[in-house]
Simulated assay, not measured.
Amino acid sequence: MPELPALIYDGDCGFCTRSARLTEKLPVQARLVPWQEADLAELRVTEDRARHEVLWVDETRRVFGGASAVAELLKHCGGPWESVGMILSAPVVRTIADWVYRRVSENRHRLPGTTPACQLPPERRPGAGA
């Protein structure tokens, strides 16, 4: 089990990997873990869920998925990022963010620079060697 909090992402998806790599630039103390290397049973998360959405696991082992995971990650950054996370968590904005997240997730393989099965070696995945 990774140290918590942790961002669990699809390590075989180029878009997901680049997005996870962006979090390395944020002021947040969290582990980045491809779901393929995470103990999903310990997290009480199904492989199907991990395949379809980014997950944020907080210090209490509470799991957030999709746009809520992004909002929680931002809340852990502090400063202005925390405010952005709070806004993304507001009911009306959350509904819109969920819709946008689903559209991007469903079409991530169509985004520039990605393929349906982008395989990165473990040493090139975000969080490797951290």
Score class of each variant (00 low, 15 high):
M1C: 06
P5S: 07
Y9C: 15
D12W: 07
G14Q: 07
F15P: 01
T17R: 08
T17P: 07
R18Y: 11
A20Q: 04
A20M: 06
E24R: 09
K25N: 15
L26V: 10
V28K: 14
V33Y: 03
P34N: 03
E37C: 01
E37A: 05
E37S: 09
A38H: 03
D39M: 05
D39P: 12
L40K: 11
L40Q: 15
E42N: 14
R44Q: 14
V45E: 13
E47I: 05
A50F: 09
E53I: 02
L55W: 01
E59H: 10
T60F: 07
R61V: 00
R61Y: 00
R62W: 07
R62D: 12
F64Y: 12
G65V: 11
A71S: 02
E72W: 01
E72F: 03
L74R: 02
K75I: 12
K75M: 13
K75Q: 13
C77N: 04
G78L: 06
G78V: 02
G79H: 11
G79Y: 13
S83K: 06
S83F: 08
V84K: 11
M86K: 11
I87A: 15
I87Y: 08
L88H: 00
S89I: 10
A90F: 04
I96G: 08
A97K: 02
D98T: 01
W99E: 07
W99K: 15
V100L: 10
Y101P: 08
Y101F: 03
R102S: 09
R103Y: 06
S105K: 07
H109R: 12
G113K: 02
G113W: 01
T114L: 06
T115K: 08
L120E: 02
P121I: 03
P121T: 02
P122N: 06
P122K: 07
R125T: 00
A130S: 12
A130G: 13
